Computed example of a mutant assay.
Amino acid sequence: MLIKYSDNPFKQVLGITFYNRKNILLFTIISILATVQYKFGEIFTFNPITLPMVPVTILGGALAIFLGFRNNSAYDRWWEARKVWGGVVNASRTFGVMICTFSSGHFSKGKIKNDQIESWRKELIHRHIGWLYALIMHLRKHNHWSDLEKYISEDEIEAIKKLHNKPTQLLHIQGKKLQEAYESKIIEDFRHMELANVIKEFYDLQGKAERIKGTIFPYYYNYFTGVFLWLFVICLPFALTPEMGWGAIPMAIAISFVFTILEKSGAVTEDPFEGRAADTPITTITRNIEIDLLEMIKSDTVPAPIEPKTGRFGVKYLD
């Protein structure tokens, strides 16, 4: 999640210019060509290529409608992704509290020892943290197993490596472990049902995240937005030059840049799980959950929170 570009205004401008340098160069070339051919027409008395302002203005209005719809829809996807992971945070804390407080040797009348219960709690908390990292891996489609290997046994790692949906299978294992705990009297019937409901909630939240990831933004909006954008960018300087002369060059570049940034913002925001600076910071959120859960079981290996990263030109963001 992008926090801010930089504390230095000069670096802000430099960074924005650098990351959009190709488009700015194209805007400049088109604007200069349109203005130069118009000025040459005045000097050598031939009819230069010009366009009336009204149809270009109408085209700009149509483009603004497409960009507005796309950006609103893209932001809805980004915000829903953030709400889904907010739900993961709350449900994970609830799960941790239930695991630590619902389990007891009371139900087995002392047959289950405290160290066995502590081991069971640790196992389920660790596997849940593994599920969080497996879900990140699933959404970002990479194979970084190091975070899972810290919390999940080698046998389970080898078992889920062969399967398509790894986080789903980890939740399935959690369900089986809860059933085993119920049968061995670590938890009783009502508490087993409550924990099963939390597992169901994890399935629901995972499904929502997969829906956001798997639903492609309507192609025709992306396609026609791009077509209208570049048609507008090409036509704009030919309409401005008869009225503004050389001043049409910076004005056309500025207006084209504004529309292009709006289009780029929508394109980036519509895929919130890719791990870019502007995306939902699921790694940071997961680390915070990891810290909370490990502290609940009084672990000796609680990691530090993830600090904001500083990228090129002083950009600050959370992963």
Rank of each mutant, 00 (worst) to 15 (best):
I24L: 15
Y133L: 03
I136H: 06
V56C: 01
F40P: 06
I49A: 15
R140W: 06
G275F: 03
E274Y: 06
Y317S: 12
E210Y: 07
Y38D: 03
G266L: 00
M296S: 05
I282N: 02
Q179L: 15
E180R: 09
G275L: 03
E290I: 07
N90L: 13
K298Q: 14
P272L: 07
S103Y: 10
K162I: 07
R127D: 05
N20C: 02
L25N: 08
P308M: 07
D189M: 11
W131H: 11
S256Y: 00
G41V: 08
E194N: 12
I65T: 08
A159C: 03
W79M: 13
H192Q: 11
L135D: 01
L236G: 02
H164L: 10
Q179M: 14
I32M: 09
F313D: 09
Q206R: 10
H142M: 10
T260F: 15
I199K: 02
G247F: 14
Y203N: 10
K176M: 14
H106D: 12
R287F: 03
T57V: 12
T310N: 09
N114L: 10
E295C: 07
P48L: 06
K298Y: 09
A181F: 05
L293Q: 02
A254H: 04
A277W: 01
N8P: 04
I234P: 01
L294G: 02
Y219V: 11
